[in-house]
Design a protein around this nucleic acid. Sequence first.
DNA 1: CTGAAAGCGCTAACAT
DNA 2: ATGTTAGCGCTTTCAG
Lengths: 334, 334
Amino acid sequence: MATIYDIAKAVGVAKSTVANALSGKGTVSETTRQRILQAAQDLGYRPNAVARSLYLHKTFTIALIIPNIANPFYPEIAGAVENMAREHEYQVLLCNTHQNFDLGRQQMERFISRWVDGYIIMGSSMDIADITQYFKHGHPIVLCDWQENESPIGIPQVSVDFYQAGELAAKHLLELGHQRIAIIGDEPQQTLRLEGFRAVLEKSGIALPPSMIQQGNSTLESGYAAAKKLLLHEPHPTAIFATTDWMAVGAMDAVLDEGLHIPQDISIIGLDDIVVSAHIRPRLTTIAVPKLQLAKEATELLLNQFTDRQDSSASHLVEPYIIVRQSTAAPISI
Amino acid sequence: MATIYDIAKAVGVAKSTVANALSGKGTVSETTRQRILQAAQDLGYRPNAVARSLYLHKTFTIALIIPNIANPFYPEIAGAVENMAREHEYQVLLCNTHQNFDLGRQQMERFISRWVDGYIIMGSSMDIADITQYFKHGHPIVLCDWQENESPIGIPQVSVDFYQAGELAAKHLLELGHQRIAIIGDEPQQTLRLEGFRAVLEKSGIALPPSMIQQGNSTLESGYAAAKKLLLHEPHPTAIFATTDWMAVGAMDAVLDEGLHIPQDISIIGLDDIVVSAHIRPRLTTIAVPKLQLAKEATELLLNQFTDRQDSSASHLVEPYIIVRQSTAAPISI
DNA sequence: CTGAAAGCGCTAACAT
DNA sequence: ATGTTAGCGCTTTCAG
């Protein structure tokens, strides 16, 4: 690997002159500049970003910390973040914490050692207490799609109004006339959706007994298992709100496996609007989350922190909206 | 940020003593070692990986270069690669090239500037000519899930026997009794699958006319569009082989949208075995690819190159296998 | 317009 | 057992 020193030797000038010529910063005569550029070309010179980082205290790297890329909610976002980062000459390091806080902390320590410039932390991939510490210590962080209620004051964030999302789901089911309603959630990560959902039901005098609340972990399989349990009850619920589409797909599978029909016997509504939801049978009704907007704003907010230190208080809450498809309908027998 | 020099000052020893104490390499008396460790703790010392990299010429970073993380084939692999890398104290940079060779080259140049230690390049995310150049210049590379026939001699690779995959798909359809068979491919990236498929058909005297070959681009939407075109033909094919599951899901959607039944009117078979394929209706018959094995072996092969420079010739070809589910059956009317 | 020199934080010889 | 020193390749004053 050729260095600026090699170029300097070849051309017969000093390192700093080469640096000036290459960066275009100082003043270099046109002739030497040309000779330097030529030599750089000939030697196959590539700037050394590591050395540059050491001096600049900046690596042009951001980390994207998520629970699990295998959850189809994240790939879309990861792609968008990578695109935006690239446009600004940043690289993105991927980190799946699998909801393991120790692992999250350990990875964070490694990132800090590497002088990663900033972090987009999604879902509930890390302990908010840890995050708060890191943020206080000056590490630029943006919370994205942050789950729910542990209000992380002071940390910039771009999230979805999940309470409203829960409300939207409940309203839809209520309007359809459902009374026996169940929810498949991923607590304690995703309580806001449940709370919004429950609040609307209660306002209509409909209870959400513990037996109608099943615990999942955001995987398809957990949605399947949760739905199976729900179907054990007689009479079974006529509608299920799965707090993520991925679990909803699993729940649909379970319901169908039991020989029941969707939406005739049971309505199912999800949350996220992952791509596949629009293409399976029946097509999944869902509360959509504007994922690209999330990714875009989160990246912008992070990049802004690198320049304006102040902007950090900015927090965006994006609005979910319902997409009614085929998996929900009025209950046949009330 | 505290440095070893800060610790040295605090304790009253030389930098190198601190370095020795911290790394456990040299010999340091137990008392000073303790004082150094204590000071490190107090000052909140974190080793500086950038400085370390500059000296060591090693960044403990690998890049995962893929066509598009939004294609559900990749997230599973990306997760597995990240896991393995982490266990070996490596970080992974994500790069989606969107099949844009210029972008791939540009990103590769940036990675090289950053002294990324090695590359796992998947699908057809980059120009094989570029890759070959980089590999020749000493950059550790592993090709993973490499698409088909431009035999990249000398570059270690872990791929699937796609020719065999194509054969398996054809055999299955033939055994079921299909005669009017179509394929949705993603050429020129994925020709081997098509060739294996075609070879088996021809052996049975069944032609694959151009009208029965539709072009997709590995997105769900392209599978949908391709299937729609296929259905324009009278009589329409009784079976479709989509060369990726993601396109197969789109194809199923299109067929169903036309009011046809799967598998009664049309059989559909995919390739990849992405998670969702097992959970949609009808469940998708597919040629499965051992994704975790791909990811694991690719990462190992890359990590090996960092130590044994020789092992690079190793190339693995993993075997695909069929999973018969509900989307294929004998044609009703021959 | 060009050069010399310091320093980013660390590692590893080599002295002491 | 500890200290000194010379880099890794770059950027940035500050002199000439």
